[in-house]
């Protein structure tokens, strides 16, 4: 079995994280921003698992469970907030949600 070197995992995770960051910054739809944040968290999970496997320790993989739990709680609260804003404004486009500036 030809092992995949650690660096490849790290580069993949870094790219996923960067894609997520760019997604948060350029996207105008609150739901898409939420998805981009989830992508960033999963990039972190990949980093944890890769390091953990490479070092032959299990604790990094346990940490991933914690991250997944937190991500689920965040998504639940976030979707509720976005749903509520859709009820009052009929839009989830963040360019429309600009009552307060400076």
């Amino acid at each position: 079995m030809a092992a995949v070197p650690l660096d490849w995992y790290l580069i993949l995770a870094g790219l996923l994280f960067a894609i997520g960051t760019v997604g948060v910054l350029v996207s105008r739809n609150a739901i898409v921003i939420l998805m981009a944040i989830e992508l960033m968290l999963n990039a972190v999970n990949l980093t944890f698992v890769a390091f953990s496997h490479y070092m032959g320790k299990n604790d990094g993989q346990v940490l991933v469970f914690l991250v997944m739990t937190v991500a689920a709680a965040e998504a639940a609260v976030g979707l509720a907030i976005i749903l509520n804003i859709f009820r009052t404004r009929e839009s989830v486009n963040i360019d429309d949600i600009n009552l307060m500036k400076w």
């Binding site: 972190v44 804003i85 949600i97």
Partner: peptide, 27 residues
Amino acid sequence: NEAGMKYFLIGAFASSFFLYGIALVYG
């Protein structure tokens, strides 16, 4: 509503940076 959403999106965004930092320190 707007405050809640801004806080949520930016807070979650910041948390993922924080978490990536933990992952790299762990590495």
